[in-house]
Computed example of a mutant assay.
Amino acid sequence: MPKRHSLDAVIIGAGIVGAACAYYAARSGLTVAVVDRGPVAGGTTGAGEGNLLVSDKEAGPELDLALLSTRLWRELSDALPPDIEYEPKGGLVVAPDETTLKALRTFAEGQRAAGVTPEEIPGHRLADLEPHLAPGQAGGFLYPQDAQVQPAKAAARLLAAAQAQTHLGEEVTHVLRDPTTGAVRGVRTPHRDLLAPIVVNAAGTWGAEIAHRAGAHLPVLPRRGFVLVTEPLPRVVRHKVYAADYIADVASGSASLQSSAVVEGTPAGPVLIGATRERVGFDRALSTEALRRLATQAATLFPFLADVDIVRVYHGFRPYLPDHLPAIGPDPRVPGLYHACGHEGAGIGLAPATGALIAAALTGTHPPLDPTPFSPARDFDDHAPGGDR
């Protein structure tokens, strides 16, 4: 007979979002368990760069969520051990010409109204911020609120601080439901039943499968991305630097390969170079075209990178929802089922705010912001992408 546990909630997923849900639920007085078929941060979190960005988000619900998370990450940087490598280094968005700079200016004005604090940097001052940046840029915008974290360590530290029961290497094979009411009553793995009146789906790119096992529908799809890692270098890139077309790539629903260089140094020395996006299912094949584009675009921003060795390449899958907003909150079709997934490439940055919203929903307390735009009950049909399967 499998071992049984009495819990307030079971969280499926030991990535950064699941860890944040566990942390804030525990702070709210709930007893939770976290279960994952792999290790901590074994999915999208472990393949992320650790971006905590407001700079790439237009005014609206996702930016509101990001601003809340910005504040919460600052609090977490004091509460968690320093090895999470929280670094409020700021982001620099670069425009190669006046037309692009004008578009960035309009974009920034909308963000200011929401509480973002961008500063326009004329072209002749860019070298003061990034001495190795390619000359001839029209200008850019500095975002002091952008930051960085080591995502795998942050997930592990959040889980430790939550003091949650953690069951790794155990796939959830069934979401248990009451045969009369249909309400969830826990999950089953090959090793145990974990009984609880609440199940939180924080399974990232596998969120659609977990929803299906619970009798619900959530159209989460994987969106593949590659990252290049250079040899260790002195701190030659001071901020998170990216070309303005990255913003358009983030907002795009295209299934084809898109790439726009995001370049940043790390405390350990290597420079990280992202980011590509393409919807190819869970195809893990190496794309030489994606790597070539990234390397070329990075060297265009920082010419010195043309002579630097790439020592490693890694890739992962962003959990993509068609309208580019995560699903956070209760599923009205299955009592006791909550979702916290679909953050695409922003999950690391948005994790604390997601955890706080989930904790408020679980305890019936006032949420820190309006959760309505993130409701899993919203209609995704108008945004349904093609060519993904």
Score class of each variant (00 low, 15 high):
residue 168 L to A: 05
residue 174 H to D: 13
residue 167 H to M: 04
residue 191 H to Y: 12
residue 160 A to S: 15
residue 169 G to T: 10
residue 174 H to R: 15
residue 191 H to E: 14
residue 153 K to T: 14
residue 152 A to G: 13
residue 163 Q to F: 05
residue 178 D to Q: 12
residue 183 A to L: 11
residue 173 T to Q: 13
residue 157 R to A: 14
residue 168 L to F: 03
residue 176 L to T: 06
residue 156 A to Q: 14
residue 169 G to K: 11
residue 149 V to H: 02
residue 179 P to I: 10
residue 160 A to L: 15
residue 161 A to S: 15
residue 161 A to M: 12
residue 167 H to W: 04
residue 179 P to C: 11
residue 185 R to H: 13
residue 182 G to S: 05
residue 160 A to Y: 08
residue 162 A to F: 03
residue 169 G to N: 06
residue 177 R to F: 06
residue 166 T to Y: 00
residue 180 T to N: 08
residue 191 H to Q: 15
residue 163 Q to D: 15
residue 157 R to M: 10
residue 183 A to P: 05
residue 152 A to S: 15
residue 190 P to S: 09
residue 178 D to F: 08
residue 192 R to E: 14
residue 189 T to R: 13
residue 169 G to S: 11
residue 155 A to F: 05
residue 193 D to V: 03
residue 161 A to E: 14
residue 173 T to W: 05
residue 176 L to Y: 08
residue 168 L to Q: 02
residue 166 T to Q: 03
residue 180 T to D: 08
residue 192 R to D: 11
residue 151 P to C: 10
residue 151 P to Q: 09
residue 154 A to F: 00
residue 178 D to M: 09
residue 190 P to G: 09
residue 172 V to C: 10
residue 152 A to Y: 02
residue 174 H to K: 10
residue 157 R to T: 05
residue 175 V to C: 06
residue 156 A to P: 11
residue 192 R to C: 07
residue 167 H to N: 03
residue 167 H to K: 02
residue 190 P to R: 06
residue 155 A to K: 00
residue 154 A to K: 01
residue 177 R to D: 07
residue 179 P to E: 14
residue 173 T to Y: 07
residue 152 A to Q: 02
residue 185 R to T: 13
residue 193 D to W: 01
residue 152 A to F: 02
residue 154 A to R: 00
residue 163 Q to V: 08
residue 192 R to P: 06
residue 178 D to S: 11
residue 172 V to M: 05
residue 150 Q to V: 06
residue 164 A to G: 04
residue 183 A to T: 09
residue 178 D to N: 14
residue 174 H to I: 07
residue 161 A to C: 10
residue 158 L to A: 09
residue 150 Q to T: 06
residue 172 V to Q: 10
residue 162 A to T: 07
residue 190 P to Q: 10
residue 168 L to T: 00
